[in-house]
Design a protein around this nucleic acid. Structure first.
Lengths: 243, 243
DNA sequence: CGCAAGATTGACATCAATCAACTGAGGTGG
DNA sequence: CCACCTCAGTTGATTGATGTCAATCTTGCG
């Protein structure tokens, strides 16, 4: 079983044994990819989608001046570019952060699932809609929060998502990104991200050092970030009961 | 035929006559709703989705202080809350801008389409992924563009989308929003949106007055906004050929 | 040992928010 | 029929948050 983390903490229970097998059977191969490696480029034509087994992946867009904006960050259990199945071309780049292990799912296998497994298809659809819900939250974050709250919000989201897949333990989680990349996710400069982290550290909320985040006061962090995890749809399996 | 604008300018041609009929048959009713009316509220449990026949609808989130961030704006031909089919609860509010005409599609009808019309289901999925692609572009807009470019980008997007459904003519289109709402979409204050519109007007790019946008120099506007319409997937019917 | 990349800090510049005043159009009630 | 009110838009003055530029520090590694 490869895709054990898929929808874990969310709607995993809605997957029948058969559906889990179908999903795993759709995987044509598994491979390891090194850190800071591009997986696909804007406008590439995709023939397969990628499921993230282990590690972290970012999706981003560069502006004319070469400045980067992360538009999504992926954690184990995410289908990185399932949306590429219906869109075929994406308008952003995809690259690994740390080293990763990924599984490849050819698009024809997904077409078969659409035809033969409507309930599973709906769960796949759901998982792309989760991405969209996160996108909306990022819009809110960038549009309405100041720098400190943005960074706090970013870490709240990651802590919650990693907790769902069992990668948040003892108030800490690994996240192999630099302060500059954090800045690119939060729409601030690297310098300012640094100052912001200092504020969070001095207030006893969060320490982020060398790719490890240590959450010291999650309630305070959430309050500062106006963070409410419902957009991540924790424990939503009941939405997918068969009737 | 009610849903004639659905995917127009995009993948409309991929819809067979039969699928168009199925889609129309899924509609349980059509109604008119007045301006500034809430259609659904955050956390409501949805039993149906809404297709926008005529008029404009916004989706938004409010922060603790009551300040609003638009996360999407819908034009005729959009399925406003198709994502509500799989998500059931949305974490944002939905409200009309001007007066609208909408069609209601009960979720059981969509479940049937999932089971019986995989190709049509994939087109529905595609349309929710278009929304996600727009979300990503909004993230980019808010994270990397300054106020003037953000407003320019917003109008570029609307001009392109309205053109696809035949509502952009002679360089003008109607958009029943106030300057404050424009500001809420672009992550700036109302006062600053006003100054920004003045800049665009003085530079001969765009005039927005009384709910009508008049695009005077689209190439300049696009350049300023770093706008590339490929994320809106114009003329993509070939992605959905049956094989 | 010396270099490179990331992190940190200070000084200063700039963009946008805030506060406040005023205009004009439309609607309404006396 | 006009006085008044409200709402959207406009402008000016000032403040504040974040960007920019530049120097220094730390650490790991060849």
């Amino acid at each position: 079983m490869i895709s054990t983390k898929f929808l874990r903490g969310r709607a995993r229970a809605a997957l029948s044994i058969h559906e889990q097998q179908v999903l795993d059977a759709a995987i044509s191969g598994v491979r390891e990819v090194g850190p800071r490696t591009m997986l696909s480029r804007s406008d590439d034509v995709l023939q397969q989608s990628t499921y993230l087994i282990e590690g972290f992946v970012s999706r981003y867009m560069d502006d004319r001046g070469g400045h980067r904006q992360l538009v999504a960050i992926h954690v184990p259990g995410d289908f990185i570019d399932l949306h590429g199945f219906a869109l075929k071309r994406l308008n952003h780049d995809v690259a690994t952060l740390g080293p990763v292990r990924i599984a490849t799912v050819p698009h024809p296998a997904l077409t078969r699932i659409m035809a033969e497994e409507p309930h599973l298809a709906r769960l796949l659809w759901f998982s792309t809609l989760l991405d969209a819900a996160m996108h909306r939250e990022w819009i809110f974050r960038l549009g309405r929060l100041d720098a400190t709250a943005r960074v706090a919000h970013f870490f709240c989201e990651l802590a919650t998502r990693l907790d769902m897949v069992g990668l948040y333990e003892g108030g800490r989680f690994a996240l192999p990104i630099t302060q500059s990349e954090l800045a690119e996710a939060c729409g601030v400069t690297g310098v300012h991200a640094n100052r912001t982290l200092r504020v969070l550290r001095e207030q006893g909320m969060l320490v982020f050092r060398e790719g490890v985040a240590e959450v010291l006061d999650l309630p305070a962090l959430k309050r500062l970030a106006q963070f409410d995890d419902s957009y991540l749809y924790p424990n939503s399996a009941e939405l997918f009961e068969r009737n």
